[in-house]
């Protein structure tokens, strides 16, 4: 099922939180939804689910959500980790949420076991840890086996094992044909999980492309060469049309070429190469590069040594 967000716009008085945002979430893929704090990610997800009123529309296979017969079989959303009554047992909570799609007890128990809440399912979730709340939220979202998952910050509060489990689970879910949209601040995790990215800043679309293309846009994709004579090699590489910067005592950072070509040029110039490493930007670096100008709530520089915090 294809999800098309078309011209989503949300204004609070004179402030435009989401500004004419359009993107597509495709089946079989995990789409990461990124943006700095206050960029409008949660508002966008709420607009998509019809929780907030605004302009634009979100179509699920060409139809608005409320036009589908069984909404929970279309989309499962987990937007808030603590959206449950603390006095209602987890199992009863899921039974309640299964009403729309008439989900049976067997499926409820299956989902409880799947998210690892079997031991506490009959207990009240009052004392649940954040990680357990996330598991219950995820169980709610997948209960009716929807074709689309929309999840906000699912890894918050999860331990490393649980994050690993979550990654495997969502990847498998997407590969079975579901469209998965995940908003998260854990960029390293997102890099492992998502294959497509939608990035927003100040409510506007900054990027809507594959993970590989997005990361490749960063200036940090280069080759580090440590050699016997960096000045000679720099001029040779520059003559070949490559962008070269000195790095350290004997190093060069070379952009726009491969290790093979740089190695050939170094060999031809008679400069001995001591180390050559292809460096790839991380999602975090690419994200920081692209959103540095669109941050609403930027912190000051980190305190240097000797300054009090």
């Amino acid at each position: 099922m294809i999800v098309e967000a078309c011209g989503l716009t949300k204004r609070y008085g004179k402030v435009t939180a989401v500004d004419d945002l359009s993107f597509t979430v495709r089946p079989g893929h995990i789409t990461g939804f990124l943006g700095p704090n206050g960029s409008g990610k949660s508002t966008t997800l709420r607009l998509m689910m019809g929780l907030d009123h605004g302009d634009g529309s979100t179509l699920f296979d060409g139809r608005r959500l409320r036009e589908h017969a069984h909404v929970t079989r279309v989309v499962g959303a987990h937007l808030d980790a603590k959206s449950f009554h603390p006095g209602r047992p987890a199992r009863a909570h899921l039974r309640m949420l299964g009403s729309e799609a008439r989900v049976g007890r067997r499926r409820v128990d299956e989902v409880i076991d799947l998210v690892g809440l079997g031991d506490v399912a009959r207990g009240r979730p009052r004392g649940f840890s954040l990680g357990m709340c996330q598991r219950l939220g995820l169980a709610s979202a997948i209960l009716a086996q929807p074709a689309v998952l929309i999840i906000d910050e699912p890894a918050n509060g999860l331990d490393p094992q649980s994050i690993h489990w979550l990654r495997d689970f969502l990847t498998t879910y997407a590969h079975r044909g579901a469209a998965v949209l995940i908003s998260s601040h854990l960029l390293a995790e997102m890099q492992l999980m998502a294959d497509h990215l939608v990035v927003i800043g100040q409510g506007r679309l900054i990027a809507d492309e594959s993970m590989a293309d997005f990361v490749a846009r960063s200036a940090r994709n280069d080759v580090l060469v440590r050699c016997s004579n960096p000045l000679v090699l720099r001029s040779v590489l520059a003559e070949a049309g490559l962008v070269v910067h000195l790095e350290g005592v004997d190093g060069l950072a070379v952009s726009g070429s491969t290790t093979d070509r740089i190695g050939d040029l170094a060999f031809q110039s008679g400069v001995s190469v001591r180390e050559m490493v292809s460096r790839h930007a991380s999602l975090e670096q690419a994200f920081l590069d692209l959103t540095s100008g669109v941050q609403d709530f930027a912190a000051g520089a980190a305190p240097s040594e000797g300054t009090s915090a």
Partner: peptide, 18 residues
């Protein structure tokens, strides 16, 4: 009251958008 106090309203409207 419980819908708003326990932030369940989003879940409820996610199931029943009308």
């Amino acid at each position: 009251g419980h819908e708003y106090r326990y932030r369940l309203v989003g879940v409820t409207l996610g199931e029943f958008p009308r």
